[in-house]
Amino acid sequence: MTASDGTQTDGPGAHEGEAHHGGLSSRMNWLRAGVMGANDGIVSTAGLVVGVAGATAAGGPILTAGIAGVVAGAVSMALGEYVSVSSQRDTERALLAKERAELDLYPDEELDELAALYVAKGLKHATARQVAQELTEHDAFAAHADAELGIDPQALTNPLHAAGASAVAFTIGSLLPLIAILVPPPGARVAVTFVVVLLALAVTGAVSAHLGTAGKPAAVTRLVLGGALAMLVTFGIGHLVGATVL
């Protein structure tokens, strides 16, 4: 039997609620992932171009390093997301296949297990049994996938979609510091980039906190301080290396 504590669902009424709220939850997860991907692009590319700018004022090397960073970062993000989501999807498929086999081999035991899950959520035994029977008659596999595994068999994440979204978000975030450091005159490049990047991090921090229903001041402060530290460190290293090598 598939072991489960039954804590991944909201109860017997969750099936109906998910029909209305599942799509919204999915879109929110994608949006949150997009914001975090853009944030990664901002910080990593900003650190790279500011570091190169610390070594040289020439625009060519900065542009070359920036483009290389954008491409390498986007590919890395996409590959990492593809591997991660593929592994998750393989695991979900294996769990669903096991659950389907158990339903075929032990239908009565699975019905008892489903009823027990609803009892654990607070329903009376008679009510839990009735709910389990009705859900089993409607779609036993979907009922067990939801109650035991917290998985919607019809809404498994697509690894290619996740990889593409991650690459696009990273690229969009990366373009901001790249443009910020190339447009101003050489003497103002680093200062302008610092201001633009920190403002962008403040915005992404606020949006991320809003999506995650967390405190905005703490989220914004962490991102801004982290981004500032990253740029200061890379600029210092670039300046030292540039003074020594160039």
Score class of each variant (00 low, 15 high):
1 M>W: 13
2 T>Q: 14
3 A>P: 13
6 G>Q: 14
11 G>I: 12
12 P>G: 15
18 E>L: 02
18 E>M: 01
20 H>T: 12
26 S>V: 08
30 W>R: 00
33 A>Y: 02
33 A>Q: 07
37 G>W: 01
39 N>L: 11
41 G>F: 11
49 V>K: 09
50 V>H: 12
56 T>D: 06
56 T>F: 05
59 G>L: 12
61 P>E: 06
63 L>T: 08
66 G>V: 09
67 I>V: 15
70 V>K: 00
71 V>K: 04
74 A>P: 01
76 S>D: 10
82 Y>P: 00
83 V>K: 05
85 V>L: 05
89 R>N: 01
89 R>Y: 02
89 R>W: 00
95 L>K: 13
99 E>P: 10
100 R>M: 03
103 L>D: 07
108 D>H: 09
108 D>W: 07
108 D>F: 08
113 E>S: 14
116 A>E: 11
116 A>F: 10
117 L>K: 10
122 G>T: 07
126 A>R: 09
127 T>G: 04
129 R>C: 03
129 R>A: 06
129 R>D: 06
130 Q>N: 09
131 V>T: 11
132 A>E: 09
133 Q>M: 05
134 E>V: 14
138 H>L: 08
140 A>M: 14
141 F>K: 09
141 F>S: 10
146 D>K: 13
148 E>Y: 10
148 E>Q: 15
149 L>A: 07
150 G>A: 14
152 D>F: 04
155 A>N: 01
155 A>W: 00
160 L>D: 02
162 A>H: 02
176 L>T: 05
181 I>E: 10
186 P>D: 06
192 V>K: 06
192 V>S: 07
193 T>L: 13
195 V>I: 10
196 V>C: 11
200 A>W: 14
201 L>I: 01
203 V>W: 15
209 A>R: 08
210 H>P: 00
215 G>D: 14
217 P>E: 07
217 P>F: 04
229 L>W: 02
238 G>V: 15
240 L>Y: 11
241 V>Q: 01
242 G>C: 14
242 G>F: 15
244 T>K: 13
